Each structure stands twice: as C-alpha cells, then as structure tokens.
Simulated assay, not measured.
Amino acid sequence: MANLFEVESGDFLVLRNDEGRFSLWPGFTGVPPGWSVVAGPDTRQACLGFIEQTR
C-alpha cells in the first residue's frame, strides 16, 4: 500500500500547529486536533512550495 503522504495525485492541505510547525496532509482525511488549515486544497507540489516560501 502506498504512503498517502507521498502520493503525487490528489488534493493536499498545508496544516500549521500552535508551535508554527507545518505539515503536508492528504485533503480527504480529517484535520487532527491542534492543527489548522493554512493552504489548499491544492496539488502536493503546490503545497510543498507554499511551505518552502512560508518558512
């Protein structure tokens, strides 16, 4: 089974927690407690680009 965080297709979200840490998250899953959506849904590459530009 493929790792859902590494699949190139599908929509992804960029999450950020209260400590300012980012996470790339598959768009079809629920957002875990303590995290907020800051970008997306978008492609995996676009979300990774957002993280790179924002850090």
Rank of each mutant, 00 (worst) to 15 (best):
P32G: 10
D18E: 07
F50H: 05
R21P: 00
V7I: 14
D42W: 11
L24G: 01
S36Y: 09
D18Q: 07
V14R: 02
T43Y: 10
P41N: 03
N3P: 09
E6L: 13
R21A: 14
G30R: 15
G20H: 12
P26Q: 10
S9N: 07
N3A: 14
D11Y: 13
G27E: 06
N17S: 01
P41M: 13
G49E: 07
G49I: 03
N17V: 02
F28I: 09
S36L: 11
W25L: 02
V37D: 10
M1D: 14
L15H: 00
F22C: 02
E52C: 12
E8I: 00
L4N: 08
L4M: 13
L4P: 10
R16V: 02
P33D: 14
R16S: 01
A2N: 06
T43D: 04
G20W: 14
D11N: 13
T54S: 13
Q53R: 11
G20F: 14
G10T: 06
I51V: 15
V37I: 14
A39E: 02
P41F: 11
E52W: 12
T29M: 15
G49D: 13
G27L: 11
M1N: 12
W35D: 10
R55Q: 15
L13T: 01
G49W: 04
W35T: 00
P32W: 15
V14N: 01
A46W: 05
V7A: 11
D42E: 10
W35Y: 10
V14Q: 04
I51G: 06
R55P: 06
R16E: 03
V14M: 02
P33R: 10
S9P: 00
E8C: 00
R44N: 05
F5D: 03
D42N: 08
A2C: 15
E8W: 09
R21F: 14
S36H: 07
A39N: 01
S9F: 14
F12Y: 12
V37G: 13
E52H: 15
C47M: 15
G40F: 08
P32D: 12
S23G: 06
L15M: 01
T43P: 02
V14L: 06
S23D: 05
F22P: 03
E19M: 10
G40H: 02
S36P: 00
L24E: 05
V38D: 05
S23N: 07
T29F: 15
S23W: 02
F28T: 04
L48Q: 08
L15R: 02
V31D: 07
L15A: 01
W25P: 00
G27R: 05
G40C: 03
N17C: 00
W25K: 08
E6R: 11
S9C: 06
E52G: 10
W25Y: 06
S23L: 04
S9Y: 07
E6Y: 05
G49M: 08
A2V: 15
G27A: 03
E8N: 09
A46Q: 05
W35C: 01
D42P: 01
Q45M: 05
V31E: 05
G40I: 13
G30Y: 14
D42Y: 10
L15N: 00
L4D: 08
L48I: 14
G40M: 03
L15I: 00
Q53T: 07
T54H: 09
L48D: 09
P33V: 13
E6M: 12
F50D: 02
F50K: 07
V14W: 04
